[in-house]
Design a protein around this nucleic acid. Structure first.
Length: 554
RNA sequence: GCCUCCGUAGCUCAGUGGAUAGAGCACAGGAUUCCUAAUCCUGGUGCCGCAGGUUCGAGUCCUGCCGGGGGCACCA
């Protein structure tokens, strides 16, 4: 309908120009928007105001000329007028809105999908936590952000892949190996000093105990270096399996798990470094290899290869991102914890140094999560008995509640995640509020079926009985859904979807309390049932995008 | 010191440069002979942190300041 309006307005403007009533200017960007105030019609445009200075005419005067030239051959408009400082307000006839309901029912599970993405290849890389310990709630937030964003991008017509980057090379794996080895020696009765730099968590002890149980004391027979390496690899694998399981429990899966180690093994890191040095982007100084990131906006140059010959994490990260482009991705989204934001300028710089457009990479920073229980902070230190891992949180509050709550804040504000609130089945907890709306609809449909009313199909139902403001307003909100999906995808703001669904559910609950659906007037009943089915379609599609279930009864 | 995020109702937070800034919670009262009361209705609240600037128009964009979180390694 926006498209219809755009067409009507543009043509009216052109006619006015042709007749000499308006100067022939190229229109600056103008908008059609939904006014907050219903008195301002269904849609409003600012075209007269934005073109005022170029046309050297008063906004209201321009608006008048456009209005005078509007033709509405299909008769879809109910009214239109000039208002305020130069807005033009438009109102569609109810019949035009009624058609939307049929469209939604016809589209079904596809309603909300658009093709703005035009099949463009996009990759969303998220979580990518080091396999040195279990996931915590902060990872959960990043996981949700990435997962739902990927779903939104798919719905918006992008060819989307989800990827997890495994940091299985370098220091941290060595530290993990050393940590497990130390605990292992302890369990074998050896005296060891457990260094501060080693991973302190109890899970390390459990890992060590596991190796002892399954493989006995064989690690005592080898050199420390060998044992540390083998244990590091094995422990990393075990932890990664756990991470994978936890994410699956949380409803998050990936198209690809990409190993950092594989970049080294295939020589892609070396190749990238050589290319950088050859192109002059990297240089040697003090025995190390540096990348001139400061040429591309970073505050100083960064080391790629240390003086002792070991590559930095940055080096493999460059190779990794270069590899993403070689795999054909046109747009890349990285979801990082906010504590890594200092890394952004050098990554962007590295992109340019390797010949890629810095704007083709979007780095989303996800702010911290504080875990609360009944308003009291839960210690995030790895202490026995505290609920700190993602697995435990999901187990306690349930997948749906956890997923929804992670999206109730924009990703760049801190999130308080209260375990008690997450479990409450009240309005405090938006997930049940939204699910309940859908359950109510199914209850109505069951009732209708029981009374022998047809609740299928749409083509032959007349919707002209939907004359209440509440009904037209509902339809307008439903019509907004594809735009919400598209906006959330393009702006990389999945929380918009969560807010929209709450708004939709609220409108439905109000409608439900104000009007009955199963009324004697069969035409009205059928029309309302069709509307209610369309509402359910949108709720289900929205929740599905969020990876949240939509039960038919609660 | 530099970078970055945040600052909007008592609290938690929404708010693609548009018209009279919203929701939930909290507090008080009310609604079910009838489709699920996990719901709804009625009550009122704002120097949109402060000061400049851009604009026909600023909570939204720019600059500076104040306050809070996070980050500033040849760590990841």
């Amino acid at each position: 309908m926006k498209a219809t309006l755009t067409d009507l307005i543009t043509k009216a403007f052109e006619r006015a120009v042709k007749k000499g009533e308006l100067p022939d200017i190229s229109l600056p960007p103008w908008k059609i928007e939904l006014p907050k105030n219903p008195r301002h019609g269904d849609y409003a445009t600012n075209i007269a105001m934005v073109s005022a200075s170029l046309a050297k005419r008063a906004p209201r005067q321009i608006a008048e000329e456009i209005i005078a030239n509007i033709e509405d051959p299909d008769g879809v408009l109910d009214s239109f007028e000039i208002a305020g400082p130069g807005f033009m307000n438009f109102r569609f006839k109810p019949a035009r809105w009624h058609r939307i309901v049929k469209d939604i029912l016809a589209d079904g599970a596809n309603y909300g999908r658009t093709d703005v993405g035009a099949g463009k290849k996009v990759q969303v890389e998220f979580v990518s936590a080091n396999p040195t310990g279990p996931l915590h709630v902060g990872h959960g937030r990043g996981a949700l952000l990435g997962d739902v964003l990927a779903s939104l991008l798919e719905a918006a017509g992008f060819d989307t892949d989800r990827e997890y980057y495994i940091n299985d090379a370098g220091n941290q794996m060595a530290t993990l190996g050393a940590s497990v080895y130390a605990r292992y020696l302890e369990l074998c009765g050896r005296e060891v000093e457990f260094g501060e730099k080693l991973y302190q968590g109890d899970y390390v002890k459990e890992l060590a105990a596991g190796f002892l149980e399954r493989e006995g004391e064989r690690y005592l027979d080898m050199s420390e270096d060998e044992a540390v390496e083998l244990l590091g690899l094995a422990a990393g694998k075990t932890i990664l399996d756990g991470i994978r399981t936890d994410l699956e429990e949380f409803g998050v899966t990936f198209d690809r798990w990409f190993s950092e180690l594989s970049l080294y093994e295939s020589g892609r890191v070396t190749k990238t470094l050589e290319a950088l040095e050859k192109s002059g982007a990297a240089y040697r100084k003090d025995g190390a290899l540096w990348l001139s990131t400061s040429k591309y906006g970073d505050e100083k140059d960064r080391v790629l290869v240390r003086a002792d010959g070991r590559e930095t994490y940055f080096a493999s990260d460059i190779a990794y991102h270069h590899d993403k482009y070689e795999r054909g991705y046109q747009e890349i989204v990285d979801v990082w914890g906010a504590d890594h934001h200092g890394y952004v300028p050098r990554m962007k710089a590295a992109l340019e140094a390797t010949g890629h457009d810095r704007d083709s990479l979007d780095i989303l920073m996800v702010q911290l999560v504080s875990l609360l229980r009944g308003g009291e902070p839960v210690s995030m230190s790895t202490r026995a008995g505290e609920f700190v891992t993602l697995e435990e949180v999901v187990k306690e509050v349930g997948r749906d509640a956890a997923r929804f709550l992670f999206l109730t804040r924009s990703s760049d504000t801190m999130l308080d995640f209260d375990l008690e609130v997450a479990k409450q089945r009240t309005t405090d907890n938006p997930v049940f509020y939204v699910q309940y709306a859908n359950a109510r609809i199914f209850s109505v449909l069951r009732e209708a079926k029981g009374a022998g009313v047809d609740t299928e199909g749409a083509d032959d139902i007349s919707l002209s009985a939907l004359t209440q403001d509440a009904e037209i307003d509902m339809i307008k909100l439903l019509y907004l859904f594809p735009e919400v999906v598209e906006g959330a995808a393009l702006l990389r703001e999945p929380h918009r979807l969560a807010y929209y669904l709450q708004d939709l559910a609220a409108n439905f609950h109000q409608y439900y309390n104000k009007h009955r659906f199963l009324v004697e007037d069969e035409g009205l009943a059928k029309a309302r049932l069709a509307l209610v089915r369309a509402i359910s379609t949108v709720i289900v599609n929205g929740l599905t995008l969020m990876g949240v279930s939509a039960p038919e009864s609660m």
